[in-house]
């Protein structure tokens, strides 16, 4: 179910402001790709173009192509809603639906696609997804409690369960652990390592150690100055990026000399 994403010459605009310029990259299936860079460098914006979530803001648009297994996600006949059903997303702050129970949260995306799901299928799917998100043991006795009754780290894993319940091709994560404590962060990182067996994962992170720990490939974004668009500086295997990057700016950023 994991698929390759091929981004070619992508520019992202908010109105007349060019936020990200000229990004080309290949995202391999069944791997973790980390996007790193200083604040405002456009890495989150770029991540959101991969499932067309940036279009939620009025005036946002892109130029260039994003191919998922050869299909342009920005083709004229492609519905952004359909794209988002293929490409799941986990946000910086956990956002389970507060009015839904834990089980309903997991099923939220499935119910959009397929309203008639039998009770036993639903139960199986809830269990599968929660097991997949390493949350089953903690919540199996209180599936009918509100999602907001969980701790922050549990809520974030619930959100991951919700995202994988629809069996997406790709999972996008926008700083998924930045609002969590170290133990919950570790739980999420372990989970990412397991999930990459089944999914293509792209993760934005501010935490360099996290990028080094969880990712196979790392992409470094940077901006020349305020008002300038963010650019992809370089992308390579994570090991190479963190030991012998080919661009000086990457080395400066990774070693903490700026940014």
């Amino acid at each position: 179910m994991a698929q390759r994403i091929d981004v070619k010459d992508l520019d992202v605009y908010y109105g007349s402001f060019k936020a990200v310029a000229d990004v080309s990259m290949m995202i391999e299936p069944r791997s973790v790709t980390a996007l790193i860079g200083p604040s405002g460098c456009g890495k989150s914006t770029f991540l959101r173009t991969l499932n067309r979530m940036h279009e939620v803001l009025p005036g946002a648009r892109v130029e260039g192509t994003v191919l998922m297994d050869g299909v342009d996600l920005y083709g004229n006949d492609v519905d952004p809603v359909a794209v988002r059903r293929q490409i799941g997303m986990v946000f910086q702050r956990p956002n389970p639906f507060p009015t839904m129970s834990i089980a309903e949260n997991v099923l939220a995306g499935v119910r959009l696609n397929n309203r008639r799901i039998s009770k036993s299928d639903a139960e199986t799917l809830v269990e599968q997804s929660l097991v997949g998100a390493n949350l089953w043991k903690e919540v199996k006795d209180r599936l009918d409690r509100p999602g907001s009754s969980l701790s922050g780290g549990q809520q974030q894993r619930l959100c991951i369960a919700r995202a994988i319940a629809v069996k997406p091709q790709v999972l996008l994560m926008d700083e998924p652990a930045s609002a969590l404590d170290p133990i919950s962060t570790l739980a999420i990182e372990d989970l990412i390592a397991e999930l990459k067996n089944d999914y293509t994962i792209v993760i934005v992170t501010h935490n360099m150690q996290q990028a080094a720990r969880v990712s196979d490939r790392t992409a470094f974004f940077n901006i020349a100055g305020t008002g300038e668009p963010g650019r992809l500086i370089e992308m390579d295997d994570t090991r190479t990026m963190f030991s012998t990057p080919s661009v000086q700016a990457t080395e400066d950023y990774i070693s903490g000399r700026f940014g």
Partner: peptide, 24 residues
């Protein structure tokens, strides 16, 4: 956050309203 959660799951605008806005 709740609206984006719904949209990211592939909800249309009306589905987003039903999942996030009306219950809230």
């Amino acid at each position: 956050l709740h609206e984006e959660a719904a949209l990211a799951l592939g909800a249309t605008r009306w589905e987003m309203v039903r999942m996030a806005v009306l219950p809230f």
